[in-house]
Amino acid sequence: MLLPDRFLTYLKEYPDGADITHVSAVGGGSINRVYCLSSATNKYLLKLNSRITFPEMFACEVSGLRTIGDTNTIAVPAIIACDDFEDQSFLLLEWVETRRPTRKSSETLGRQLAAMHCCSSTDFGLDADNYMGSLIQSNKKHPTWSEFFIHERLMPMVKMAVDKGLLNAGDQQSFGILYSRLSGLFDEEPASLTHGDLWSGNYIIGADEKPRLIDPAIAYGHREFDMAMTTLFGGFSQEFYGAYNEALPLAEGWEQRLDLWNLYPLLVHLNLFGAGYLGQVRDCLQQYL
């Protein structure tokens, strides 16, 4: 077994716990160790990480999944358990058998994401901070998207990058110019519930063709932010965008603002993975100065 017997025994304390007969490792990125657990009747997805290094990370993930699930607009995997065991934190979810997206499932994803974006709030932000990747994400509330995006998204990442020597004084000055101009670059909309990290690896299509969102970094924000993230690394079809725009049309010029909103995830990648992302950050920034 890849996991100690004492841990597998501990999992039996949960209502859906079962005798695990097989454990296999699956890809989980650079933060978590991920496993498929099999019993005689069910399969589960287990995520493990250090509870000291990433405190409350899985609790934040659970909160995000439940918030999305409670909208009854788009599915998320069922949550079975979230707890600490010795020096590890763990999250146990249902295992979802997946398939490649089809035209039908892509259209469903677009319509259901639009429905989720209709879930609104009076403020931009969230009641609690959470994570974007392995970085703490500040969600202090603001009355406008421009204030929230500047103070809770761009400024913390720019400061971190400057402190790491990844951005210089000239870059910092350029971001200051952007801050002064940002409110004039788009039209404010009511705050929408956003996934917050909506790249192609954070949605799955079940064998039943039902879309599910995973690994959220939620906040109430501008829905163009989610749509911009879908374009950063590809993996979303034209059927997805067509169905979304039919259900909830995006504002005129939204495609010209993709790089603006993608400054945040690019800064996150710059801080996590280094100077390889510096050119993209600067190129995106220069478009709006």
Rank of each mutant, 00 (worst) to 15 (best):
L2M: 13
L3C: 05
F7Y: 08
T9E: 15
Y14G: 02
G17A: 01
A18I: 00
A25T: 12
G27R: 11
S30H: 13
V34N: 14
C36S: 13
T41K: 15
N42S: 14
N42R: 15
K43D: 15
R51I: 12
R51E: 08
T53Y: 11
F54P: 00
P55A: 12
F58D: 09
E61G: 08
E61W: 06
S63K: 14
G64F: 04
L65R: 11
T67S: 14
G69V: 03
T71N: 06
T71F: 08
V76W: 00
V76P: 01
P77S: 09
A78L: 07
I80M: 10
A81L: 05
C82Y: 05
D84Q: 11
F90D: 01
L93H: 06
R99S: 13
S105L: 01
S106L: 02
L109Q: 00
G110S: 04
G110Y: 01
R111Y: 06
A114R: 01
A115G: 07
M116H: 03
S121D: 14
M132F: 09
M132V: 05
L135W: 04
I136Q: 15
K140A: 14
P143M: 07
P143G: 10
W145T: 11
W145S: 11
S146P: 00
F148V: 15
M155H: 10
M157Y: 06
K159V: 12
K159Q: 15
M160P: 01
M160W: 03
L166R: 07
A169L: 09
A169H: 04
I177W: 08
I177G: 05
S180W: 03
S180D: 15
R181F: 04
S183H: 09
G184T: 12
L185W: 04
S192K: 01
L193H: 01
G196C: 02
L198S: 07
W199N: 07
S200Q: 12
I204T: 12
I205E: 06
I205R: 07
K210N: 13
P211E: 12
R212M: 13
R212T: 09
L213G: 05
I214M: 04
I214Y: 07
P216T: 02
A219H: 15
F225K: 00
D226E: 05
M227S: 06
A228K: 11
A228L: 06
M229R: 00
M229D: 08
M229E: 09
T231I: 02
G234K: 00
G235K: 01
F240N: 01
F240S: 02
Y244W: 06
Y244H: 02
Y244A: 02
E246I: 04
A247M: 09
L248T: 00
P249Y: 10
L250V: 08
A251I: 05
G253E: 03
E255F: 02
E255Q: 13
Q256T: 10
L258P: 00
W261D: 00
L263S: 08
P265V: 03
P265A: 13
L267Y: 05
L267W: 07
N271P: 03
L272M: 10
G274H: 02
G274E: 04
G276A: 07
Y277Q: 12
Y277M: 11
Q280W: 00
Q280T: 11
Q287Y: 08
L289P: 04
L289T: 15
